[in-house]
Design a protein around this nucleic acid. Structure first.
Length: 405
RNA sequence: GGGCGGGUUCCAGAGCGGUCAAAUGGGGCAGACUGUAAAUCUGCUGGCUUAUGCCUUCGGAGGUUCGAAUCCUUCCCCGCCCA
């Protein structure tokens, strides 16, 4: 009932950025088939900020395939590392999380993972289980297995070293901790984004020292964020969250640069290589309009996470608002306890449409504020009477404010 | 421990006694245009009872000065080199 190693290889290698080393991966599949033993596929996760996005889904989707082929997915919740603090040097040190926060985050993380794959069939481990138990002597022993110049091979360390930027000593320990995780769970495969290459390779070294067969590595492409330049990440604000509501998801997908359309088609909506090629050719030949291609991607993306129905209505709403510049079909009503006449500037702030009066003035001066469909250019404009007003700020901020008598 | 160079607004990075809320680029927002929240172009980008006005900001605390991001003292932090 298990597929042959070849068949599995065909499925599992589709859409990956890199498999290291390929022959070992294939050998593992073959042994797995022969002995009827599922492979142990590890995914480490940082529970510090549980807001998964469609970039994570690229990895999760691959993991789902492993699951469907009968392999064992092992999630490692990095609760220990999260409690200690920030691994990545450039960001200002993140505050260490408390035990409760970490647990809450982990719960929410798994819930979001559950959108893509079957968490109940996965093995879930917390790395505090073994990392918290290590003594300093244990740490030194593991640290002795890696040299400083090996560490400096990692391009992010290398670059900072070259640029004379700080690298804190503990940053060297995080890759080590990840490697120890692999040893602990006896990972056959570790999966992650291409930025994890160094850490995953280091884990192989530690596994060899521990007398284990080293894990094979599956690296998935990193999806660019909606800005089209940097990788998708929460901190850069260029992400589409798995939990984004349909309209948000649709709109964000429509804001990607044209060059990214096909890539999103392939990796965000999991179109096959053939489908992606077809779209690419259509775009190049001019038979497929970029806007339509993008709308297709956006719709398919929304459909995946919210269903066909939601996708269709998100698309209609988008067309209404941005192509035809009409009002959205639902506008939040905000009651203001202000007695007319009220300066418009004050209304905008009170309604939460802008963060400050200065900002409100700038927007008015720049022609970005509308009341009842009419552009307001006067900084001193007031809403004179009680009643409801539809206020629009920019393209996307709407509110129906109600002034009481 | 010694020497040198640094810490500036969301980020990077100029400024080095007044003309500094602080160049420039990025990001963000808005406008025009359009095929979309693409691209391109333009404008804006600390706050306040709109005021040739006031307040807060240039690592922290003091000081000099009519006046400081700019000078001095001291403290904290970072990088490099030497030990």
């Amino acid at each position: 009932m298990m597929l042959s190693a070849r068949e599995q290889w065909r499925i599992l290698s589709d859409g990956v950025a890199e498999i290291l080393p390929e022959d070992e991966f294939l050998a593992k599949l073959e042994r797995s088939v022969q002995t009827g033993t599922p492979l142990r596929v590890k995914l480490g996760c940082d529970p510090s900020r549980p807001d998964l996005h469609i970039g994570h889904a690229v990895v999760l989707e691959k993991l789902r395939q492993f699951q469907e082929l009968g392999h064992r997915v092992i999630f490692i919740i990095g609760d220990f590392t999260a409690m200690i603090g920030d691994p990545s040097g450039r960001s200002k040190t993140r505050p260490a999380l408390t035990m409760e926060e970490t647990q809450e985050n982990a719960r929410s993380y798994l819930e979001q993972v559950g959108i893509v794959l079957d968490v109940s069939r996965a093995e879930i481990r917390h790395n505090s289980e073994w990392l918290a138990a290590m003594t300093f002597a244990d740490v030194i022993r593991v640290a002795s297995q890696v040299t400083v110049s090996q560490m400096l091979e990692r391009d992010d360390f290398h670059e900072r070293f070259e640029r004379e930027q700080p690298i804190a000593l503990h940053e060297f320990l995080y890759p080590l901790a990840q490697g120890i995780d692999s040893v602990q769970v006896r990972a056959d495969i570790e999966i992650g984004g291409t930025d994890q290459r160094f850490n995953f390779l280091l884990a192989r070294e530690l596994q060899k020292h521990a007398g284990q067969p080293p894990q094979a590595i599956v690296l998935m492409p990193l999806l660019e964020g909606t800005d089209g330049v940097q990788k998708m990440s929460k901190s850069l604000g260029n992400y589409i969250a798995l939990l984004d509501p349909p309209r948000e998801m649709f709109g964000k997908a429509m804001s990607i640069p044209d060059e990214l359309i096909v890539r999103y088609y392939r990796y965000a909506t999991f179109a096959s290589a053939d489908e992606a090629r077809a779209m690419e050719e259509g775009l190049r030949a001019g038979t497929l309009h970029p806007r339509d291609a993008k709308a297709l991607v956006a719709e398919r993306l929304v459909a995946r996470y919210h269903g066909e129905e939601a996708a269709r209505s998100a698309r209609e709403e988008f067309d209404r608002m941005f192509r035809h510049k009409q009002l959205p079909d639902q506008i939040e009503t905000i009651e203001l306890r202000l007695i007319p006449p009220v300066p418009l500037v004050e209304v905008l702030v009170a309604a939460g449409l802008v963060p400050s009066k200065s900002e409100a003035r700038r927007l008015i001066a720049g022609g970005g504020v509308y009341v009842e469909g009419e552009r307001i250019g006067d900084l001193h404009a007031t809403l004179g009477d009680a009643g409801e007003y539809v206020v629009k700020v920019g393209k996307r901020r709407f509110a129906r404010v109600r002034l009481q008598a």
